[in-house]
Design a protein around this nucleic acid. Structure first.
Length: 379
RNA sequence: UGGGAUGUAGCCAAGUGGUAAGGCAACAGACUUUGACUCUGUCAUCUCGCUGGUUCGAUCCCAGCCAUCCCAG
């Protein structure tokens, strides 16, 4: 009987995943992961729970424990606080300091959930790990493929785009063929009271929902600068630091109406980190928000290399529609993606994840440089 | 100082003698394992620069004052 270590988070998804694996006949060991400590990590500004009697992580732990008890499964606990800080959070901050917009959860998967946790599982004689991810694994011969989950609205393959073939082969995805609504239904049937109606967690993994700017201020000093209209070079206002904004962002600029002009809202379309200038464009369809090709580094593919001139689909941001692109290889870990037509707000630091039109996820990389009409966009 | 123009919520901006459109911003909620986008809702009632007057009733009419801008000088 194969043994699986299941990451039980205290949410409904991993709880039902545990049940399914058990029902399928796996020998399941549950484990609660703790990767962050607000106090050890000096996280106070804008922390909504810093004064709570019970920290939300402990509530999650208790909820997870109840699930394990209900399902009659062994329950462990492990901390990866140092690993998270060293491999995920440090990278996250470095990217922000460069003015880019990283996706920490992709690296959390790569380095913590599918690496540190996998090693811990192996040390405990487990064959596989599993969690509550919505994704599908398909084995054909000795090859393993990753597909989008049946529940496309919950599909999380985007976050798995940096895991290696070995990591993929070590993981089971029990929720790949189940709709979220059915997950809730199963939780109710099992009377998993601690999680059945719990709201889905959002926000950065292990950090949670936050006023993002306040959170970053704990680690990156605020440096005021000018907000400049890219069309006319007018100074429209001031920002608290160029790194607090991402491309395409509308909220938080505080720019009101201007005499004699129709106010369409202002959107971030570029940044000059050295001069600390934030560039904005008026209206959501301004040309400056678009780009037509990009360079992607850190390319990670689960299987064979993709030939030049292949047309496929890319997701540039989580929960955004897949967009048609044509791929060209630069070297083993760098590709160029030419867009079918100009796309809005493709942002350096975010992941570009590659799909075939049947939902097969080929892998992905990190958007490094973005171009429009042959010119490098200045971010 | 003379002539002209304007003064409506944080910013733009409609408006009528009969009791204040809209947009932007902001805030809240929804959505969401990044950051965003998006959607929904809230947002002038000792109020329409101030003070008087006309009127049943004025933000809109009249007078004076104040402030700002433009042209003269």
């Amino acid at each position: 009987m194969s043994k699986v270590m299941l990451g039980l988070s205290g949410g409904v998804d991993s709880a039902v995943a545990a049940y399914i694996l058990k029902k399928q006949g796996y020998d399941v060991v549950c484990c609660f992961m703790r990767n962050r400590d607000s106090f050890a990590n000096n996280d106070f500004l804008g922390n909504p729970t810093v004064d709570n009697d019970i920290c939300p992580q402990e509530k999650d732990y208790n909820d997870a424990k109840k699930v394990a008890e209900k399902l009659n499964l062994p329950f462990l606990r492990i901390d990866f606080i140092k690993e998270y800080w060293d491999n995920v959070f440090t990278y996250f901050l470095e990217e922000y300091k460069k003015g880019r917009t990283p996706n920490p959860d992709i690296f959390c998967n790569k380095y913590i959930k599918f690496d540190s946790f996998l090693k811990f599982a192996k040390e405990n004689n487990c064959d596989y790990i599993a969690m509550g991810h919505y994704a599908k694994r398909v084995d054909v011969g000795d090859k393993t493929y990753l597909y989008k989950a049946k529940d496309l609205s919950k599909d999380q393959t985007y976050f798995l785009s940096q895991i290696s073939t070995y990591q993929l082969k070590s993981c089971l995805f029990p929720l790949g063929d189940i709709l979220k609504s059915d997950v809730r239904k199963i939780a109710h049937e099992l009377n998993l009271e601690s999680v059945e109606d719990k709201k889905d967690s959002t926000g950065i993994c292990f950090i949670g929902e936050r006023n993002f700017k306040e959170f970053l201020k704990n680690y990156i000093p605020a440096t005021q600068g000018e907000i400049v209209d890219i069309q006319t070079n007018r100074i429209l206002g001031h920002h608290d630091g160029v790194m607090y904004y991402t491309l395409g962002q509308r909220k938080g600029l505080g720019i009101g109406g201007i005499k004699g002009e129709v106010a369409k809202g202002w959107f971030v379309c570029g940044k000059d980190v050295s001069k600390n200038i934030l560039y904005v464009a008026s209206g959501s369809e301004d040309e400056h928000l678009f780009s037509d090709y990009c360079l992607v580094t850190n390319l990670n593919l689960y299987n064979e290399k993709i030939p030049d001139n292949t047309h496929l689909f890319a997701k540039f941001r989580y929960r955004q529609q897949d967009l048609g692109v044509t791929l060209f290889n630069i070297d083993d870990t760098t590709i160029k993606l030419i867009f079918d037509k100009p796309y809005k707000s493709v942002t350096p630091g975010q992941a570009a994840v590659l799909y075939e039109d049947d939902g097969k996820c080929l892998g992905g990389g990190i958007i490094d440089k973005v171009f429009y009409k042959g010119k490098l966009k200045n971010f």
